[in-house]
């Protein structure tokens, strides 16, 4: 198992964290995020230089065409990409810490499929639903998916091994997406649903952002508040209890955060797997096993990853958009295979 090495480190240094490196990584991550967003906003069908980007954001003038493109099309899109990436990465790192399972990810664990099913139901039965209700329904869907996977995975004693939870995720995903496809085909929504599933963050507007950004922000803040508990929890439930932690409270709160973040991400960008898998691993490699650093750094680098992936999706096959999920998968699958080869046994 991949945690054995980390454990050895913890044994030598009880609170294994590297504050100096953490601050450095976090700081450079924020700079990187700014740069990649500026880059993402400036490239596209109409190339706009950095100066214009700066001017139109901080000194908006609706008569200039470039300003309109930036403020009504590109800025919301890149903000959404950053928020979605952050949400997915943070929910992935929480799940990996809580389940002590290196393969945990909202896409592989049935959350995305649950949210997709919920969305198919909304499209079919309440086509006029507002974005807020769409988002709430996605939370519920993600919750149903997660409950099924975790319930199934922990039915047997010693239950939540990487294999069991991945298989449970595959089965739940198959079931929920079959029902979703059935509904979509029956109500002739398959085109809409496909575009939405593969659509990524294109077409995000300010109305959606007004709900998305605060929800993701609050979710991440709560995650950071409970990150110390998560670090203790990641040593194992027994140790956490031995250290006097109220594990039930921590787990419940963190699970709610996971559902809110994954549901919000899915409600905007569709089912995107592998972000939540990759980012926490990379971050852990840089800042160690202390979740007080892992969570904020995951949020930043998740944002960077999604912004860059979305930019690639726009540029690879311009003027057509390549689904951003596919771009992420191209990087994510080799990563998954590597992890599965290294730590998936047992």
């Amino acid at each position: 198992m991949m945690f054995s090495k980390n454990k050895r480190m913890q044994a030598g240094d009880a609170a294994f964290s590297r504050p100096v490196i953490g601050v450095t990584v976090l700081g450079s991550g924020i700079v990187l995020l700014m740069l990649s967003m500026a880059f993402a906003i400036s490239v596209g069908a109409a190339d706009i230089d950095f100066f214009t980007v700066w001017r139109s954001i901080f000194d908006y003038d609706s008569t200039r065409e470039a300003d309109q493109i930036i403020v009504s099309l590109r800025l919301p899109r890149e903000l959404a990409a950053a928020a979605v990436g952050a949400a997915l990465a943070v929910s992935g790192s929480i799940m990996q810490g809580m389940t002590r399972n290196p393969l945990a990810d909202s896409g592989l664990l049935g959350l995305n499929a649950g949210a997709s099913l919920a969305l198919a139901c909304v499209f079919a039965f309440y086509p006029s639903a507002t974005y807020l209700s769409v988002m709430i329904v996605s939370f519920i869907g993600a919750g149903i998916g997660a409950a099924m996977v975790f319930g199934l995975g922990s039915l047997k004693r010693g239950g939540l091994t990487p294999l069991r939870i991945t298989l449970a995720g595959a089965a739940v995903t198959a079931l929920l997406s079959a029902i979703a496809e059935g509904i979509a085909l029956y109500y002739k929504l398959s085109q809409e649903l496909t575009f939405w599933t593969a659509g990524g963050v294109s077409g995000t507007n300010w109305v959606q952002l007004r709900w998305l950004l605060p929800v993701v922000g609050v979710g991440i803040v709560i995650a950071i508040m409970f990150s110390k508990g998560l670090t203790v929890l990641s040593f194992g439930e027994e140790i956490a209890k031995g250290l006097g932690q109220r594990t039930l409270l921590t787990k419940t709160v963190l699970m709610c955060v996971v559902l809110i973040l994954a549901g919000a991400a899915v409600s905007i960008a569709g089912a995107i797997a592998f972000v939540g898998l990759m980012v926490p691993h990379m971050v852990r490699f840089l800042v160690g096993t202390d979740y007080r650093w892992i969570i904020p750094c995951s949020a930043i680098f998740g944002g960077v990853l999604m912004v860059l992936a979305d930019t690639a999706a726009r540029l690879v096959n311009a003027p057509y958009e390549t689904p951003v999920g596919a771009i992420v998968s191209m990087v994510g699958v080799p990563f998954f295979l590597y992890l599965a080869r290294r730590g998936g046994r047992k």
Partner: peptide, 15 residues
């Protein structure tokens, strides 16, 4: 495990 991952990736590719 690897099969499950590949299935997810290839289905993404088809989409």
């Amino acid at each position: 495990l690897i099969g499950v991952g590949m299935a997810a990736a290839l289905n993404g590719g088809i989409i």
